[in-house]
Amino acid sequence: MVKAQAPTFQEMIFALQRYWAAQGCAVMQPVDTEVGAGTFHTATTLRSLGPKPWAACYAQPCRRPTDGRYGENPNRLQHYYQFQVLMKPSPVNAQELYLGSLAEIGLDATAHDVRFVEDDWESPTLGAWGLGWEVWIDGMEVTQFTYFQQVGGIECAPVPVEITYGLERLAMYAQDVDSCFDVVWCRDPEGHELTYGDVFHENEREFSTYNFEVADVAALRRHFDDYELQCQACLDRELPLVAYDCALKCSHAFNLLDARGALSQTERMNYILRVRSVAKAACVAWMAASDTKAEVAK
């Protein structure tokens, strides 16, 4: 039974955008390259660096090829949405702001058991780590809440706070459904419902098949190598934003290779190190470029 008053999937995104816009966040659109998490968006990774204040929010489609289940598992998807908030410096009332946002999507924190459960975050491919929590509502993990300490191997000062909502889970909970495919995406004026399954079920089946069975391993290895070289070329020409985009392409090629089971343990580690070094190099170049601009502005 879908609760009549529960927001639809799209209404949740609208509500979160409006809420965080009112807190001073610039509402961004998703990055248009495949990423494994909202963190990889330049609005998070690169803007976490450097002294300038920054506040942004956006919904980000994420691809995690290994999590695909051909649309057969009600909880696991290889393509899903995160709603991402990044505020630098982290405000003193970051947790209260977050709890306030839950009410906007139909989850009144006072009517539930909300916990901040230790979960330190680390992204080996981004050379990034932070401390924080996973947020539980009645035992369900719905959000990652992290104070970044380092990104791209560079210390973050001031420190940003990253809040990442798992939109499908929150929607399942708010709408009281047991399968993410039953989440109501939107409702037309006559009350006809479009579900998450209507939009993405076939997508899960096809991409799971591709990720696990079809993706050409040799081609993926080539893609990885090519983008790694492109990244270097862009760094040489002082184009850190493009270099970073190439690093994202490498990361996705690696994720696909991983899903294909094509990598031995040692090889896997090597690929992670290669992604990390291009991502780090792009971050360092971006920092250097923004320092130069700051100098020129003076």
């Binding site: 035992g139 369900m140 047991d178």
Partner: peptide, 30 residues
């Protein structure tokens, strides 16, 4: 389970936890 919430909402809190435990156990069974 041990709740830190308002006991006025115990029923909803239990229900929520049951749903999560079910999903976890579903995974384990799968």
């Amino acid at each position: 389970l041990v709740s830190n919430g308002d006991s006025a909402h115990n029923a909803a809190i239990v229900q929520g936890n049951e749903r999560v435990v079910r999903a976890r156990l579903d995974d384990a069974a799968f």
